[in-house]
């Protein structure tokens, strides 16, 4: 086997166990893993930023293709750096203003379209079924009615400037019940997702336990447990 693959397996198995050790308690291995993680992730983001964003979107077009218009965002970017000098930090506001205006402008029509109109469209449906000339009330219509009630009562729960008493209180209570069912259902649904992730991780760990990888997982696991034991014994002696 290629040495880099083997080394990779050992490193991956080790780091996985380091992080898992947090479940037992905060400890040296977790701290090591945590700080390595911060460092590597920051290093990774910097590299990505340089090669995947700044080079193709800024450096090459500006200095290679002389798109001078890009001097404007460059200036806006540099203005942010005025925050280093607290006294002279106001120019950074110009950049923030630009970012905020852009974001706010984008948000309004898209929220109306994607959230409001489409969601209303989904709720505004006939409450009965008609096939030919036959009008009937099916289970589907009942479900639609529940959606209708659910949407309205949840909206009522979110009324802030009206006191929740009387009929409003009852309706907003119904809204809360809908919310609770929704939260419970999502919790249950998500449990599945999280278990899948753990499955994926354990799958890798068992893979690294094989002879092909020179039993990386079990060896490292034993070493970590040994360290815990030694530490435990030593600290006990210390306290005595």
């Amino acid at each position: 086997m290629d040495l880099s693959i083997l080394l990779g397996a050992w490193v991956a198995a080790g780091l996985t166990l380091f992080i898992f050790s947090f479940l037992y308690k905060d400890n040296f291995f977790f701290k090591l893993g945590e700080h390595l993680y911060i460092g590597v992730s920051v290093g990774y983001s910097i590299t990505l930023l340089i090669f995947k964003f700044m080079r193709p979107k800024w450096f090459t077009p500006l200095f290679g293709e002389h798109q001078w218009i890009l001097l404007i965002p460059t200036l806006l970017g540099i203005l942010i750096l005025t925050r280093f000098i607290p006294r002279l930090s106001w120019p950074s506001r110009l950049t923030f203003a630009f970012i905020f205006g852009f974001g706010a402008g984008l948000t309004i029509p898209r929220s109306i379209s994607g959230y409001i109109l489409q969601q209303i469209q989904g709720t505004v449906i006939p409450m009965i079924t008609k096939e030919g000339t036959q009008i009937s009330y099916t289970f589907r219509d009942f479900s639609n009615l529940l959606v209708f009630i659910g949407v309205l009562t949840v909206l009522i729960y979110f009324f802030f400037s009206v006191e929740h008493k009387g009929a409003i209180n009852i309706l907003s209570r119904i809204g809360i019940l809908f919310l609770m069912i929704s939260f419970g259902a999502s919790f249950g649904y998500t449990a599945m997702a999280r278990m899948s992730l753990l499955f994926g991780r354990c799958y890798d760990l068992t893979l690294f336990s094989s002879k092909r990888y020179y039993y990386a997982t079990p060896i490292l696991l034993c070493l970590i447990i040994l360290c815990f034991l030694i530490h435990h014994v030593l600290s006990k002696k210390h306290s005595v």
């Binding site: 994607g114 489409q118 969601q119 469209q121 989904g122 929704s182 259902a185 999502s186 649904y189 998500t190 599945m192 997702a193 899948s196 499955f199």
Partner: peptide, 26 residues
């Protein structure tokens, strides 16, 4: 999508904004 985001996409599913959804490992 992952099972976490799937419930949040049901409104989009019902309105036909997306025509189908595969949620999570299941």
């Amino acid at each position: 999508c992952t099972a976490v985001i799937a419930p949040g996409l049901y409104p989009f599913l019902q309105t036909g904004q997306i025509n189908g959804l595969i949620g999570g490992m299941r």
